[in-house]
Design a protein around this nucleic acid. Structure first.
Length: 240
DNA sequence: CAGTGGCCCTGTCTGC
DNA sequence: TGCAGACAGGGCCACT
């Protein structure tokens, strides 16, 4: 990769959901995923990363250094051909990834129809990147709380109105998290300048087990879900 | 073909 | 003090 990237121009940097990619020319790109602990740093600013977790280092033409750190190694870089999908040029590994809520062509009505056509629990559907992208465990829990929905509720049983409400809640949650600088619990999660986000102060249910619900005061519960956790308010978010 | 769940990884924390 | 096990979670893939 180092040899192939040497002296190459990066014409654009694009993203969809949790994937981002560097456009090298009309045919080729480098697809990057942060996994759960990947992060970029511009080397001459902010707090230096842990050298043990430095995976990629690139010297930029302006003299700065771009570094990619990843502690838990779920992230990665790969070369990928660009291909046209639904009127958009995307790398092959991203072809199956649906548009995210910030995409100008994101169609809430169409996504709501797809959600309601799923024979699965609503939280699983929110995490399905082929339905809509950009939503992980934290934002799924937060948006379900906002929309007063239990994650185990069958997606097919949701009314069109409730589904629209959930997608609205999701857009608010994602928007506010970006404003707050992302979800960060410790020094592991920082932006390119080494600054930590404060979104965790803002979380209503995620990681709040035992604490009172902001709306009704009931103790927030945590349950095992797909080898991770679901957090919810037992009073505000009931199964019908 | 859609849906389900196990597993990959590393560092930190908890409980015995 | 030391060690085992739980936990964090995005996405792939084998299985139903």
């Amino acid at each position: 990769m180092a040899a192939a990237l040497s002296e190459r121009d990066v014409r654009a940097v694009r993203r969809r959901g949790k994937y981002l990619w560097l456009v090298l020319d009309d045919e080729e790109s480098v697809v990057i995923h942060l996994g759960m602990s990947g992060q970029f740093r511009v080397g001459d600013q902010g707090v230096p990363g842990n050298p043990a977790h430095l995976r990629v280092e690139a010297d930029l033409a302006d003299g700065r250094t771009l570094q990619f750190f990843d502690q838990r190694t779920f992230g990665g870089w790969e070369f990928a051909a660009l291909q046209e999908v639904d009127g958009e040029l995307v790398p092959a590994p991203v072809a199956h990834i649906a548009r995210d809520p910030f995409d100008p062509k994101f169609d809430p009505a169409a996504v709501a129809r797809r959600v309601r056509a799923k024979r699965s629990a609503i939280k699983r559907v929110l995490l399905d990147q082929t339905v809509l992208s950009g939503v992980g465990n934290i934002y799924a829990d937060e948006s379900l709380w906002r929309a007063r929905l239990h994650g185990e509720q069958p997606a097919a049983g949701l009314s069109p109105r409730k589904t629209a409400e959930l997608l609205d809640a999701l857009a608010v949650v994602l928007g506010e998290s970006i404003t707050e600088g992302g979800t960060s619990f410790d020094s592991l999660y920082v932006n390119v300048n080494g600054e930590s986000g404060r979104f965790s102060d803002w979380l209503a249910v995620y990681g709040q087990e035992g604490k009172p619900c902001r709306r009704c005061g009931s103790a927030i519960r945590r349950e095992a879900f797909m080898n991770r956790s679901s957090h919810y308010c037992p009073r505000c978010q009931r199964l019908p």
